[in-house]
Nucleic acid binder design. Structure first.
Length: 276
DNA sequence: AATACTACCTGCGTGC
DNA sequence: TGCACGCAGGTAGTAT
């Protein structure tokens, strides 16, 4: 599931190959992938545009063009690849292909059709919802800002809060569970129950976990691939996520799994202090 | 306003 | 062998 590290690895892959390139043609075999504007306008407007740069806010990828930006969200099973040749039109799960003037392509595949793309004119209404996002965990967050934003969110369970993209943007289920383990905090704890020291540890655990995820190329469980079609490596470094029933690498206790925020939540009952 | 829960979607693993 | 079912999770929408 693409979270901040996976989207950042993809962003870097696109930047290396497609910066400054001109768009020749766009295919949209699955019209539902376009959130805004209409598919016809989307294709007509993208044609001949030049790609300026690639940005990221949380899990959103932003492609800057002249007077426009193309916003892409991979949701759970989206994969963006750069290929030298256009893929066959009947390729499985192919949702959108951007063909570049130099013959290269940017291909968007998505097994479960949750992923979306939006083309927004500069100053146009935010159809993609990026204005609702909180600060990006790596590009904008700092300890003071984290502490400040926590003030109005004391009642929420810390796991639910970290998954809330309007609080801070970029964490998903995997990196949330891993960060809470690293900080020794039980996911059921209310934010307001945590000491200043615990929050400080948590902030740094999150930054460190996200950075490690990027360094190892992201986490691949079933779907995630980078722009050259390769898997990430962080699934081999996980301490709790999808390790229910296995022993904690620190104390040997059995990793537990509960449901929080409607999501599978993994933790060590010994290393992460109990819920209050 | 803050918080929590569910629908959306498809492939895969499990159990009968 | 075949089939029903539960599960995976990011986000919008809804309810409290």
């Amino acid at each position: 599931m693409p979270e901040l590290p996976e989207v950042e690895v993809v962003r870097r892959g696109l930047e290396a190959v497609a910066s400054k390139k001109q768009i020749k043609e766009v295919w949209v075999p699955t019209p539902g992938v376009v959130g805004h504007p209409s598919v016809e306008k989307f294709i007509a407007l993208l044609r001949q545009k030049q790609i300026i740069s690639f940005d990221r806010h949380g899990k959103y990828l932003i492609v800057y063009l002249n007077n426009y930006k193309l916003v892409i969200h991979l949701r759970m099973t989206g994969v963006l690849t750069c290929e030298d040749q256009p893929p066959p039109l009947e390729s499985r799960h192919m949702r959108m292909v951007i063909l570049l003037q130099d013959g290269g392509t940017i291909c968007f595949y998505d097994q479960r059709k949750f992923g979306k793309v939006w083309l927004l004119q500069t100053g146009e209404e935010d159809y993609a919802g990026i204005n609702r996002l909180g600060p990006d965990w790596l590009n904008e967050a700092n300890w003071e800002l984290f502490k400040e934003r926590l003030k109005s969110r004391k009642r929420a369970r810390i796991k639910n809060l970290l998954l809330d993209q309007s609080f801070m943007a970029g964490l998903g289920n995997i990196y949330t569970d891993e960060s809470l383990y690293r900080a020794g905090i039980h996911p059921s704890k209310r934010a307001g129950e945590l000491s200043s020291t615990q929050l400080y540890d948590l902030y740094h655990a999150i930054i460190q976990t996200l950075k490690e995820g990027i360094e190892q190329g992201g986490t691949s469980f079933s779907n995630y691939l980078n722009t050259t079609g390769e898997e990430g490596g962080y699934q081999n470094s996980l301490s709790v996520y999808r390790r229910k029933g296995q022993s904690c690498q620190n104390c040997g206790s059995i990793i537990q799994k509960i449901i929080l925020g409607g999501r599978g939540t993994h933790f060590c009952p010994n290393c992460q202090d109990s819920a209050g």
